[in-house]
């Protein structure tokens, strides 16, 4: 026996995986939060969660289920990835600003199912995005804890982020190609 809305909730959790543009932004955001100085990122986490909630409320009640264009998520994803790749420990203000932008975009890009079960599906999407961010942030922290013994581990998230930048930039070009071609 299934509860009403459960199917949409589960579908929402998997949304970042089946929507690679969202998954990419969530993954890069996780790496960013995992790379920052711990006390400073505590505030950024709160900002991220607040912006996710604001974004999803806007998605449900202002945009009425219309998602933001993928190119916006890709551009912010590229900026987040550049911040991870360029700095060994990105500055706190930058982490907070990018976490806010990421939260708003991830919130407003929750999966659209029409009126039926929309809140359950959107809640699932919110949880899926947070799970993705927490998982990557945890991985980055795990590496950071071991940097004292193995200093080269500091470069692992930065190399992954460089790949994230490359993928995002290529995808922006793919998105813009038909627009520019008319």
């Amino acid at each position: 026996m299934s509860s009403p809305g459960a199917e949409g909730f589960v579908r929402g959790i998997g949304h970042p995986v089946f929507e690679p543009v969202q998954g990419l932004l969530a993954a890069m955001c996780g790496l960013l939060l995992g790379r920052g100085e711990r006390r400073a990122t505590g505030f950024a986490w709160k900002v991220l969660l607040g912006c996710l909630l604001v974004g999803i409320i806007a998605f449900l009640f202002v945009f009425k289920g219309h998602t933001v264009p993928p190119v916006a998520m890709l551009v912010v994803g590229a900026l987040v990835a550049v911040a991870v790749a360029a700095w060994n420990q990105p500055p706190a203000w930058l982490i907070t600003a990018l976490a806010a932008l990421s939260g708003l975009l991830l919130g407003t890009n929750a999966v659209s199912t029409g009126a039926e079960g929309q809140i359950a599906t959107s809640s699932g999407a919110l949880l899926g995005a947070v799970m993705g961010i927490v998982y990557l942030a945890g991985a980055a922290l795990w590496l950071k804890d071991r940097e004292a013994k193995l200093p080269w581990l500091a470069y692992v998230p930065r190399v992954i982020a460089a790949w994230g930048v490359a993928i995002s930039v290529m995808l922006v070009a793919f998105e813009l190609r038909p627009v520019l071609a008319g």
């Binding site: 930065r158 982020a161 490359a166 922006v172």
Partner: peptide, 26 residues
């Protein structure tokens, strides 16, 4: 040696993607 061993593979894909985007956009 360090840090070039990791910095070069960080720089390359980021800049390569810019070139790739230029190619895709003609």
């Amino acid at each position: 040696g360090r840090p070039a061993i990791w910095i070069l593979p960080i720089v390359f894909p980021m800049v390569m993607a810019v070139g790739g985007a230029m190619g895709v956009l003609g």
